[in-house]
């Protein structure tokens, strides 16, 4: 199972401005300190091995979209944020090489940042494509049709050529989709959101974003610990600091890095991927929070070791 992140930003896409690129170039040249490189390979090695993530790369700015690639069979995707457009381009390439033309798409919810990629999804205009939506909401279809009404977008939903179907999933029940056993949990978020656990070939992945964990609800906490139990990877909404999540941003429907580590450690999960990054944060901010989160896990991880990843657009994690 290969987990591929096409979009990791929360709330709204974030483009990189010219001055940010400039600052990265300056930081890289300062780090090189006048060194001479005898080949592009040597330069690449310097960039990959000696520069920190905020200088050498970026966490990206596309909103939520995660692909679960089983190597063969149908496509499986969680959410259709702006990263879904890039995914669609790559999926078209793979279909041209013989990949299945069926897409199984699990939706956490239908806020803009999770559906805005769909109108730009090229394969939906292919009559040979089948798109199977799965979600816990009754109004999933309405949300997707509405965002393509003329007042907002020039191409109405009715013009799409793909065979599109909508399937409702129910928390507590497990369904088999494309070779995965998929279970669902309801999450605390405006208009509700749903988290999913995918299991296949002895591996397990949890996708749990846009989920607030209340500070006074231990029963809910215990339920999520069980949902995350022994997962190989938990993709977790770490948009805010613990303080913000419990104070000024209470009831905004998101969680924190500290709660991510607490729950995943209790659950015995092997890895957690910080996800749904705050759009106010630049690469240095996200990198700092990632470093702090690793340190927090070291401070509290007494009996187990939870690996703390920080998702970025383009990251791949093999399970």
């Amino acid at each position: 199972m290969l987990v591929r992140f096409w979009g990791t930003r929360g709330s709204i896409p974030k483009a990189m401005r010219a001055e940010v690129v400039r600052s990265k170039v300056i930081a890289a040249l300062v780090a090189a300190d006048g060194r001479r490189f005898d080949s592009e390979t040597a330069v690449a090695r310097f960039v990959d091995e000696e520069l920190e993530m905020p200088v050498a790369g970026t966490y990206g700015g596309a909103t939520s979209c995660v692909e679960v690639d089983g190597g063969e069979g149908d496509f499986l995707v969680c959410d259709m944020g702006s990263g879904f457009r890039e995914f669609g381009i790559d999926a078209a390439r793979r279909m041209a090489e013989g990949h299945s033309k069926t897409f199984n798409i699990f939706m956490s919810h239908m806020h803009w940042d999770h559906i805005m990629g769909f109108p730009f999804f090229g394969p939906s205009f292919d009559p040979e494509v089948k798109i199977r939506f799965f979600g816990g909401h009754d109004d999933l279809e309405e949300a997707l049709r509405r965002q393509q009404e003329e007042i907002s977008f020039p191409v109405p939903f009715e013009w799409l050529k793909a065979n599109i179907e909508f399937n409702k999933v129910v928390p507590g029940e497990t369904v088999e989709v494309g070779g995965y056993q998929v279970s669902t949990v309801k999450q605390y978020h405006s208009h509700d959101s749903y988290g999913y656990r995918f299991e296949a070939g002895g591996k397990s992945l949890v996708y749990s974003t846009d989920s607030e964990h209340k500070d006074d609800d231990p029963e809910s906490e215990d339920m999520f610990v069980e949902f995350f139990r022994d997962a190989d990877l938990v993709i977790f909404d770490t948009m805010y600091s613990l303080l913000d999540a419990w104070t000024i941003k209470q009831d905004w429907g998101h969680s924190s890095n500290v709660v991510a580590v607490d729950l995943c450690s209790r659950a015995g999960a092997h890895r957690v991927a910080m996800f749904h990054h705050e759009p106010i944060h630049d690469d240095a901010d996200i990198h700092r929070v990632h470093t702090e989160t690793i340190r927090y896990e070291e401070l509290i991880g007494r009996n187990s070791r939870l690996e703390v990843l920080c998702a970025y657009d383009g990251m791949e994690v093999a399970l």
Binding site: S241, L242, S256, N257, V258, E292, Y296, L299
Partner: peptide
């Protein structure tokens, strides 16, 4: 250890 946890959670801000 507690000082670090306060800093990471941002409790030191309030």
């Amino acid at each position: 250890c507690m000082c670090e946890i306060f800093k990471i959670s941002r409790f030191d801000k309030v």
